[in-house]
Amino acid sequence: MNDQPLQISVLIPLYNEDESLPELHDWIVRVMEAHDFSYEILFMDDGSKDQSWEVIRALSLKNPHVRGIRFTRNYGKTAALQTGFQAVRGKVVITMDADLQDSPDEIPELYRMITEEKYDLVSGWKQKRYDPLTKTLPTKVYNAATRYISDVYLHDFNCGLKAYRSEVVKNITIYGEMHRYIPVIAKWNGFSRIGEKVVKHQARKYGTTKFGLERFMYGLLDLLSIAFVNKFGRRPMHFFGSLGTLMFFFGSLLTVWLIILKVYNIYTHQPYRNVTDNPLFFIALTVIIVGSQLFLGGFLGELLVKQSIHATGDYLIADEVGSRPEVLVRKG
């Protein structure tokens, strides 16, 4: 493979998909050759237990455009995508799932939308899905919540079929289970030209899905996490300091009120109780302590932000095939 920039990198994260890989590879190759694209296919094996890696090695020997990276264990789809983003070389990066539910026939139009319509990112929309109601209904709720919180108006955030300008994937960092929110993260990093394309969704041909219902709970928590980090990650004092100051002020007002009430009762010779006998005293004390701790937490957070260095992923790779550019991961 020469050193000329590639037009397209197809990045495919996978876990136990050995049956579908040859068919998917042949389908992608037919599309690339029909449109005369320069390309690479990067399979990210997320610690598969089946024969997926052996299939990838065989495909790499047959086709010099095929590369593969294998993790030592199952880190998750986000880790596979983040590592793959650092390894791809194409001007346009296409991600798709390995289960044949995403159609490679969509690639030419996705490429055109990035290169001609100048989108930073184009997300697929599986308008007609071949999934059970237990999967489609929570997905609709999740997508609606994501639109509301993020102000990114896509119908299907979790569609694996997406296209990116190379600059996008090289300048964002995802971790945990945040692959669902790449459009949100991209927008918050300044890549605001985000498009959407209706894509064909196909019924799964081999195997079963690797995701359970717990992904919706994790997805909601991750959304709240990135929303918080985006708004306050570089200025934690604005959140913790403000909340701590308000609580300290409220506790102080309660304390002053208790003191005034006691002085008034003494001055008017009315019977009174000790301040510590009043439940408001303990509420005031608790609020003042918590407020002080929040303020201190915000202050320490500011110090850490000032000294922090942007972390990069550190995932152990067991093996690798195909031509290898500079990859910002360490090999185990």
Rank of each mutant, 00 (worst) to 15 (best):
N2G: 11
I8Q: 04
I12V: 11
E19Q: 15
L21N: 08
P22C: 08
F37H: 03
S38H: 02
G47V: 10
S52Q: 09
W53A: 04
E54V: 05
V55N: 00
K62A: 15
P64H: 05
G68P: 03
R70L: 06
R73L: 10
G76N: 11
K77C: 05
V93F: 04
S103L: 05
I107S: 03
Y111G: 00
Y111T: 00
R112T: 01
D131K: 14
P132A: 06
L137G: 02
T139A: 14
V141G: 02
A144I: 08
A145G: 04
S150Y: 09
L154T: 06
F157S: 09
L161N: 04
K162E: 05
R165H: 13
E167W: 02
E167R: 10
K170P: 02
G176Q: 06
R180G: 05
Y181G: 06
I182D: 01
S192N: 13
V199M: 02
H201E: 00
T208N: 14
G212W: 11
Y218K: 15
I226H: 06
F228W: 10
L243S: 12
G244P: 10
L246P: 00
G251D: 08
T255A: 14
W257E: 11
L258Q: 09
N265W: 04
P271W: 11
P279Q: 05
I289L: 07
L294V: 05
L296T: 10
G297I: 09
I309R: 12
T312G: 10
D314Y: 12
R324D: 14
E326T: 05
E326L: 06
V327H: 03
